[in-house]
Amino acid sequence: MAPQANLVKAGAEGFDMLDRVFGRPRTTDKHFPRKQAEIITSKKAAEIYGGVLLTDNSNGKANRPGTGFKN
């Protein structure tokens, strides 16, 4: 196994190489969490943006002759 000093040096050189190729990672401010976007429903979106909401209240079955009321 390699001595600890050699492993530390190899790791530092590897991360330095990655920083030169891809750039340093951006730091984020961890003290103030970012505000999450509010999740809205399609009904609320239609109200906010002046749209129209179409709803389907069918039971999923097709209207076929002979499936309705019999006289």
Rank of each mutant, 00 (worst) to 15 (best):
N59A: 04
G51W: 09
Q36A: 10
K44H: 13
K44R: 15
F69P: 09
S58Q: 04
T41I: 12
N63T: 05
R20I: 03
A5Y: 00
T55P: 05
V52S: 13
G66Q: 07
R64P: 01
T41V: 13
R24N: 11
N63M: 09
K61F: 07
I40V: 15
N6I: 00
R64K: 11
T28E: 13
I39K: 13
T67P: 02
T27F: 12
A10E: 06
V52R: 15
F32L: 15
T55S: 15
E13L: 01
K44F: 05
N57W: 09
L18R: 04
G50M: 06
L7G: 02
T28F: 14
V21P: 01
A5D: 01
D19L: 03
K61H: 06
T55K: 15
M1Q: 02
N57R: 10
D16E: 11
V8K: 00
V52A: 13
Y49K: 09
P25L: 11
S42P: 06
R34Q: 10
K70F: 07
T67S: 11
G60D: 03
R34S: 11
G23D: 12
R26H: 13
R64S: 05
L18P: 01
L7R: 04
L53F: 05
M17I: 01
Y49D: 11
I48N: 03
K30L: 15
Q4I: 04
A62Y: 07
